[in-house]
Design a protein around this nucleic acid. Structure first.
Lengths: 112, 112
DNA sequence: CTGACTACATTGTATCACAAAGTAGCCCCC
DNA sequence: GGGGGCTACTTTGTGATACAATGTAGTCAG
């Protein structure tokens, strides 16, 4: 299990990445994230996040009726969303490199 | 610059890692993190974090006078802190693998 | 017509990074 | 000897965000 604090900030970029693969709706995004190994993301997390992305102009919603169940709200990435995704990837790898350097030094001290 | 939301949760584990290398005090930890590429961590971040770790039993404080400036509060890792660090490393790499899988799939769609 | 599954929305809560302000010791330099 | 600068810790308040809980509503199987 990944603690929720570690997901903070990461989740937003990952949702953008999923949407970039193909326009998707909330319920579907949560399932895809679970399949990628993020664990079961709560609905109370995914829908407010999508509304924030919509309000910030990173995604554009489009309602489509569903054959089974209620209508789905598909989200597509905008140009602003593309930029936000690129920035997320850059920040995340910068952080990853810093953590890797730190942990490499931390392990070395074990076996002198 | 790494956005502060991405640091959430990560910072706690990284502070444990720094302390594991050698007992350290707040001001020193912030400087080491900056050297590793985390950016300048605010004092309003580092000291409350250390107090939380102290209260949770992950670190043990020890006051030592300083030759230049006020006394320093050195923190050493406890057994509980070692376990917390191991759990952080496991969670962080689990998250990293999930993000890597997702981003790998996301890029592939670009060049069919 | 009851239950199960899909699908979206809203409200409230806990956690955490950070800014800001305060306190205090030591040093250098004019 | 007093002001400026650096070290060092503490406290208070704020904003962002993951999540639990709850509610609404559509479809379909039995």
């Amino acid at each position: 299990m990944i603690p929720s604090q570690l997901l903070k900030g990461t989740l937003e970029g990952c949702v953008l990445a999923v949407i970039r693969q193909a326009p998707a709706y909330g319920y579907e995004i949560a399932q895809k994230l679970a399949a990628y190994g993020f664990g079961q993301i709560a609905e109370g997390t995914i829908y407010p996040l999508l509304l924030r992305l919509e309000r910030s102009g990173a995604v554009r919603p489009e309602l489509r009726p569903s054959a089974l169940g209620p209508s789905r709200k598909y989200y597509a990435l905008t140009e602003g969303g593309e930029r936000a995704l690129e920035e997320f990837i850059a920040s995340y790898s910068e952080l990853g490199r810093a953590v890797d350097r730190l942990l490499a030094d931390t392990k070395k001290e074990e076996q002198p």
